[in-house]
Computed example of a mutant assay.
Amino acid sequence: MSDSNREDQRLGASQTIIHWVTLAVVLLFALLHVYRGLRAGSIIGDTSIQNFGIVLAALGGIALYFTSYWRPILYLAGALFVGTLTVFWSLRAPVTVSLEASRLILGATLVLLFTYLFYRDDLYKPDHADSVSDQNKGR
């Protein structure tokens, strides 16, 4: 039995430690944007609406994650969404404030975690493992 299967059995059928770490980083990302939205001054301002939109997208992603439908697509969409935001933020202004730096670090971390989970999920699917073993038997 592989280490990945042992880890899956120990922590539940579909959640591993890396999944929980990713969920925690997504929550930190959402909380950071709640803070930024509240700190913007007015709840109706453009900056506040953008930040709360990011929070809603993060919480919606977490809700979709627990349905277990389309997880690889969710990982890919999350990586593209956060990656695009991170690139725009990094190009917009120099990073001097610790809040902005933490947003960029969290964004880059999420892109790496989502990308890892996307490839890991594809590699450890039962269908993929069966097709690989069938290919090896034909040799």
Results as ranks from 00 to 15, higher is better:
L113E: 02
Q50G: 15
G107N: 00
V26R: 05
A129D: 12
G41E: 06
H128Y: 08
V97G: 14
L91S: 13
L106S: 03
A93Y: 06
A108L: 13
L80H: 00
A63E: 06
A93C: 00
L32F: 06
D121C: 02
G53C: 10
R36V: 08
F66Y: 08
I73V: 13
W70H: 14
W89V: 10
Y65L: 07
N51S: 14
A30L: 13
V55F: 07
L27M: 15
P72H: 00
I73N: 08
A77Q: 05
L38I: 04
F88N: 14
W89T: 07
H128T: 14
F81V: 01
V97Q: 11
L28I: 09
D122V: 04
V82P: 00
F81A: 02
G60F: 07
Y35P: 03
L31H: 00
G45P: 00
L76M: 15
I62Y: 01
T96I: 13
R36Y: 03
A63R: 12
F29M: 08
R92Q: 05
V26N: 07
I73S: 11
D121A: 10
V55W: 03
H33V: 09
T96A: 12
L27Y: 01
F118S: 02
S90H: 03
T67A: 05
L117S: 05
F118W: 05
R103S: 10
D127Y: 10
K125C: 05
R92K: 09
S48P: 01
T86C: 12
V82H: 01
A58T: 10
L117F: 01
L112G: 08
G107P: 02
Y35I: 09
T96V: 11
E100P: 00
I105M: 12
L80R: 06
D121K: 00
V55I: 13
I105N: 07
F88I: 13
G41H: 03
A129W: 00
T84I: 06
I43T: 09
P94C: 03
D130H: 10
D122K: 11
A93Q: 10
F66C: 01
A101W: 10
T109A: 15
P72N: 10
V97A: 15
Q50R: 12
Y69W: 10
Y124M: 13
A101T: 11
Y69N: 06
D121S: 15
N51L: 07
F66S: 00
L59R: 03
P94E: 06
V111A: 07
Y116V: 09
